[in-house]
Simulated scan of single mutants.
Amino acid sequence: MNVHGWRVTAQQHPHVVDAGIAGLVALGCGLVLTGRTGATVEPATALDWATVVLSPIPLIWRRDAPVLVFCAVTALFWASNAAGAQSPAAFVVSLTALHAVARYRPARFAWPTAALAVLVGFDNRLEPARAWGAFAALAAVTVAVVLIGMNQRTRAAYLSALEDRARLAVAEERARIAREMHDVVAHHLAVMVALSDGAAATAPGAPQRAADVMGQVSATGRQALGEMRRLVGLLRGTSEPGESTRAPQPGFDDIDALVDRIRAAGVRVIVRREGTPGPWGPGAGLVVYRIVQEALTNTLKHAGPRATAEVTVRYLADGADVSVVDDGAGRAARQPAPDGRHGLAGMLERAAAYGGRVGAGPRDGPGWQVHATLTFDRAGTRA
C-alpha cells in the first residue's frame, strides 16, 4: 500500500490509528520505566506499571473530545502522583493530549491547556534543585508542541479549503456542461421535428423534396450526436478519438450556420450585424451564440415554422447587444410555466457571468422578444 492508501485508511479508521498511537506511547513509557528500574535501586512498582498502561487509554478518543481527554489525562496523573506513583507516562501522555487539543480545536483552547500542562510537568520534576531549568525546558517543549499542532490544524484547514474550491469548480463545470447539453438537445430536436413535419407534408406531392429534407434531418441528428458525445466525454472526464471530440466551441462565426438550420426548418430569419467583435476570446463568442440559439429554438418550438424572426447583433467597444424578435406567426405569446423556463434560466446565467442582463417576454403585439446586454473585457471574461 502506498502513502496515499495509508492516508485514506487512516481517515476511514481514526480510532484505530489513535489506539495505535496510545499503544506506542504506552510501549515507549514502558521501555523508559524498564531502563530506569535497571539503573536504580528501587524497582518499579505495580502502581508505576498500572500508570504506564492506563494513562494512554484516553488518547483513543483524542480526536473526538481532545479537551476532555486532556482533562482526563491530567486527572489520572494527579491521582497517580498522589498515590505515590513515579511514572514517565505523565509527561509524554500529557504532551500527546495537548497536541490533540492544538490540532483539533481553536487556539483559545490550546493555550490554557498548555499552561496546565506546564504546571503538571513542573509538579512532576524529579530534581528540585534544578526546578527552574526543568521548568524552562518543559515550557519550551510545551510551546513547541502547541505550535506544531496549530500549524497542522492551519494546514489541514487550508487543504480542506482547496478541496472545497476544487469541488465547487467541478460543480460549476458540470452545470456549464448541463447548460450546453440543454442547448444542444433543445435546438437540434426542435429543428429535426420541424424538418420531419415539413417532409411529411411535402412527401405526397414532392417526394424528392421530402427526401432532401430528411437528409437535412439526418445531418442535424449526426451533428447533435457529435456534440453530445463530446459533452458527455467532458462530463465523464474522458474523450474519445474522433473529429467531433476535438471540435471547438461555436462562436461569432457560427451564427450564420445556426441561422441556416433554422431557415431550413421553415422559419424566415433576418440577420443584422453592426460593428465588429473585439478581441474578447472564445467565451464571448460562445455566450452570444448560445443566446441566439436558445431564442431561435424557442421561436421554432412555440411559434412554428411559419414564423419570422429578426436577429440583431450589435458589437460595442466593450461588449455586445443581442436582440431576437419574432412575430409568433401572428399569434400572441404567453409566459411559459415555471417548470418550462430552463432555456431562459440558462441565458440569464450566461449573461450574468459577463456582467450582463437578459430581458425576455411577449411583445406588445404578436410574438416574443429576447434582448441581452453583455460586457466583455479583452479576454472575454467579465469586465
Rank of each mutant, 00 (worst) to 15 (best):
A353P: 08
R263L: 00
L258A: 09
A317Y: 09
E240V: 02
N81H: 15
T220P: 13
M214R: 01
A284W: 07
A110F: 12
T297H: 04
A265G: 07
D260M: 08
A178Q: 05
R357L: 13
A265D: 01
Y354K: 11
Q369G: 13
G283V: 02
L344N: 10
F135Q: 13
R229P: 05
L296N: 05
H302S: 04
V146C: 01
I291S: 07
D327R: 04
A190G: 00
V73M: 07
D18C: 04
A247W: 08
R125S: 07
G355A: 06
I255T: 01
N81M: 10
L116H: 02
M228L: 13
V217E: 02
R176W: 03
G205T: 15
P250G: 00
I177A: 14
P338S: 12
R263F: 06
Y354L: 14
R357Y: 12
F91V: 05
V269H: 06
A309W: 13
R222Q: 09
P112V: 06
G281C: 10
L95T: 09
T381F: 10
M192A: 15
P282D: 06
F135S: 10
W78P: 05
A309M: 07
T9Y: 15
R62G: 14
P241V: 09
E42N: 09
A85Q: 01
A107K: 01
T74K: 01
R306L: 08
D318P: 10
E243H: 10
A44C: 05
A156S: 06
V118W: 09
V141G: 00
F91H: 11
W6C: 12
G242D: 02
H187M: 02
A19R: 08
L195V: 02
V287W: 03
T373P: 06
A351Q: 09
Q208L: 13
Q223D: 00
I262A: 04
R363S: 10
H188C: 06
A129S: 13
G361T: 07
F91Y: 10
A82S: 01
Q293T: 04
V259A: 02
A82T: 01
S323K: 09
D48A: 00
A117M: 05
P338H: 08
A372Y: 01
A206D: 15
P204Y: 14
L119Q: 10
A171R: 11
D197N: 14
D183A: 11
L168D: 15
Q152G: 01
S160I: 07
A303W: 08
A137G: 14
M228S: 13
A333N: 06
A107C: 03
V370K: 12
L348R: 10
A82F: 01
L189Q: 03
R272C: 11
D256C: 11
V322S: 05
F70M: 12
P338K: 12
N151S: 15
V184S: 00
L300G: 04
L344W: 07
S87C: 03
R229F: 08
A107W: 08
G304Q: 12
Q293G: 11
G233L: 01
L24V: 09
P277D: 00
G121T: 01
F91W: 12
P362W: 03
H371F: 07
A200P: 04
L348T: 13
V92C: 08
Y104H: 14
L31W: 05
T37I: 02
R176H: 06
R167H: 15
A169Y: 04
Q335T: 14
T96N: 07
A353H: 06
N151W: 04
T74V: 13
Q369I: 15
V73H: 03
G20C: 06
A10R: 13
T51W: 00
V185F: 10
